[in-house]
Design a protein around this nucleic acid. Structure first.
Lengths: 225, 225
DNA sequence: GCTATAAATAACCAAATAGTTATTTGTTGG
DNA sequence: CCAACAAATAACTATTTGGTTATTTATAGC
């Protein structure tokens, strides 16, 4: 019997990765509830049986997807080497990075939204995430400390509040870009709109963390917006 | 045949409202994709037939739910009468209101998230929302203008950027409270944590919109945090 | 080369789900 | 008082969906 069609190759690692990539896309696009296992298997050029073989069930697959998304985000941020910059420049760089990352990875945002809709029950179980998060919080603490010591940042700043605020002003703008563009009757995603928002965000964060003197200096030099 | 059990009463308006309330709850809790028509009908103490009779289909019901949620939010904000307060006090009041509203209406936040996951296709069709939104943007514009004229707010502020930022620092904190509490290993929803966040947000917004002189004055009087 | 292992596929299944049909029963205008 | 209408209910249906079973087949270790 001639059967030289589809000489079925085997590559478990590649299959796993294709499934993960397809899952990321599907969960980001439709949320956990709206995602379909069949679509993930199809797009991964695999099948449901393999998906269940490697990942257990839909919920477990979602958990791994969310964990991976966080890990990649923090890893990229850690690679910034902010220690090499003076505090104000480092803060600018950080705000800039977060903005660029969210913009380039809209799937990260929708995954986080979906995970919160489910009360973060998947992330809660992740030991790996705990470790990653601690380092992340430590980096912000170090930066604020450095800025305070050199007199450019205010004292007594809570690194958690600062971190949350930096993420917030980028995240909200992007995750709510659709309702936002309707409410404000303006294309929030045009090139100019995006550039304007980034500039506004950097200025907002600097006004938030810098001392009055530093703000005055930056303003005078035209370095705030 | 004795049948004095359940003397079926009829009240179309009440049934409609019960279905809407149940839909709000269900969509907020599970998103559009995760929501179940059966659960909505059950919780509304009605049935699927009535739901389809009054609202057409799941998508249409979701659209009305989102529209209502926006309408209520804007209506409450409009009722604040910020014109009666001097600009700084008005801004404090607005930030405070938004925080309290989001806190008291978590369903608003998850509905907006869900609507954005679906690229706001439901809200886009709402004429009613357009009208409401315009008034809303106008109010912020008026407040910023008033503050600029009296010299307490900086000039050239974009009301859209300010609006988005005010919403962002409240919204993000609350919608991501679950992943946030894990990442920061801190209960972000304790009474003290919530009070601290509100204070931080008010200070952040005032630092964002006020002139350097005004910030200095507020700081000296201990009115920033 | 042979065999145990596991990668891959397809066909299957029970439960769930959005949406309908058929029927009953209050309510209201003439 | 009664006929037309509309509110309410229950039973039904076609399809989808997460998850399984049965089977085939490539491959690594001996």
């Amino acid at each position: 019997m001639t059967k030289h069609a589809k000489p079925q190759v085997r590559d478990p690692d590649a299959t796993r990765l294709r499934i993960l990539a397809a899952a990321m896309r599907e969960f980001a696009r439709f949320g956990l509830g709206g995602a379909r296992i069949d679509r993930i298997a199809l797009r991964a050029r695999s099948n449901k049986r393999m998906l269940y073989h490697y990942f257990g069930n839909k919920d477990d697959l979602f958990a791994i997807t969310v964990e991976n998304a966080y890990a990649e985000f923090r890893e990229r941020e850690a690679a910034l080497q902010l220690d090499a910059l003076e505090p104000v420049a480092a803060m600018r760089e950080l705000v800039n990075f977060i903005w660029d990352y969210f913009l380039a990875h809209p799937e990260f945002i929708t995954l986080v939204n979906s995970e919160n809709l489910h009360k973060a029950r998947h992330l809660k179980a992740s030991k790996r995430n705990t470790e990653i998060s601690r380092k992340f919080v430590g980096r912000m603490q170090a930066l604020l400390c450095r800025g305070e010591t050199s007199g450019v940042f205010r004292s007594g700043l809570d690194p958690v509040q600062v971190n949350i605020s930096i993420a917030a002003i980028a995240y909200y703008y992007l995750t709510n870009q659709f309702t936002g563009s309707i409410v404000f009757e303006r294309d929030l995603m045009s090139k100019q709109a995006l550039a304007a928002r980034l500039a506004f965000n950097i200025a907002t964060v600097l006004r938030m963390v810098c001392t009055a003197d530093t703000v005055a200096r930056l303003e005078k030099n035209g370095e705030l917006k």
